[in-house]
Design a binder for these strands. Structure first.
Lengths: 202, 202
DNA sequence: AGAAGCGGAGAACGTGCGTTCTCCGGCGTG
DNA sequence: CACGCCGGAGAACGCACGTTCTCCGCTTCT
């Protein structure tokens, strides 16, 4: 088996298991069983479990932000693009295996223990924050709105993770709409819960 | 030593350690060392670690919500009382040993493993949510605003926990002010970052 | 065909930790 | 004073898991 496909299989298994059950509840042996990659190979690719966790977070980060950006890009107009972020979150929350924000979960689990993991979480959240700041600037809204949208999105993720519904996305979207309107961004229609075909699995 | 004071000492130690380092990173022996309560006594009071965790969460829940309610009650007027929630959060975030929301942290750590713990987290968040709903009703705002304030507060807690500043509280307060104004609640002064002497240690 | 090395399976090792057990000193009662 | 019980200290046990080691079969090259 090619080293590259072994790596991918290992990461696939790690992601499914770590996200679904938590990092500490999953042993390296579980990853081996699920991935079919031998322990020896696993330790050649990732010399310690922490590195497997970091690699999992990194790969998921790239995919998560890529899919969000693609979804947002399908929308026209600065205001609707901001609202599309929350529509995308709603789709994510509705996925059957949704179990909250992977980064917040591992932060709760390892943030106090592993500085490397904590750093990745901060990097991911920082990148998401930057993304929202960009959308905010495009909409010619005050810079402060970027941070406000970020808080809304984080609150929605956390709440959806704990309570397990999709309403938090709608509630956050509603507040975002108020923030957009309150500062007079050019919004075509104040309602219309977004179009575009659903796909993607963040 | 009285059983009651042993229990309190155990919970004091458990809270400090669990909150500061995470539950899984703390052994029962650490609790014994820190509390001065012998292992035997510890297991008489809490037959398993999980029960100590639950007791820690319960006691902290009572104190946290009690202090929040007391702080809010010092304020006059439905609008200012809502804003006071975010001022209180800001004070909490500024405490030197603040390490995020205890419930979200344990949820990330044990939510997938321990249903008893997960249930306590949901109970705490539900109670907080109800509290905000009450304030929202008092202010004669639409019921939907309660959930929106909740999202803001959760987002602020999570963000303050990961990045470690107090700005999230101010940002969330600002959005709350917009929500209050947008629906014409009777707000005396739109600014003024709250009065009242700081105290309390949530 | 024979040799050599790569990789897989899984045993083995060490450690940490939740939980229980053992021993012992002190303190109150006949 | 003698006896017995309560509680503390910490050793002991069992298990889970991260990490490493051993053995063995297969493939590949000459």
């Amino acid at each position: 088996m090619d080293s590259e496909v072994a790596r991918e299989r290992a990461l696939d298994a790690a992601e499914r298991l770590f996200y679904g059950r938590g990092v500490q509840a999953v042993g390296m042996d579980d990853v081996r069983r699920t991935s079919g990659v031998s322990l020896k190979r696993l330790y050649q690719l990732f010399p310690a479990k922490e590195q497997l966790v970091v690699a999992y977070l990194d790969r998921r980060d790239a995919r998560w932000r890529g899919e969000l950006a693609r979804y947002v890009d399908r929308h026209e107009g600065a205001g609707p693009r901001i609202l599309a972020v929350f529509d995308w979150l709603g789709q994510w929350f509705a996925e059957p295996d949704f179990r909250g924000c992977a980064w917040l979960n591992v932060y709760g689990e390892l943030g106090a223990t592993s500085s490397r993991v904590a750093e990745r979480v901060r990097a991911h959240k920082g990148a998401f924050r930057d993304f929202l700041d960009g959308l905010t600037a495009d909409a010619q809204l005050p810079a402060a709105v970027g941070g406000q949208l970020f808080l809304l999105a984080e609150g929605a993720m956390v709440t959806a993770g704990v309570t397990g519904g999709t309403e938090p996305a709608r509630q956050a979207r509603e507040v975002a709409r108020v923030l957009l309107g309150a500062d007079g961004a050019g919004l075509p229609a104040p309602d219309a819960p977004a179009v575009s075909p659903p796909s993607a699995t963040p």
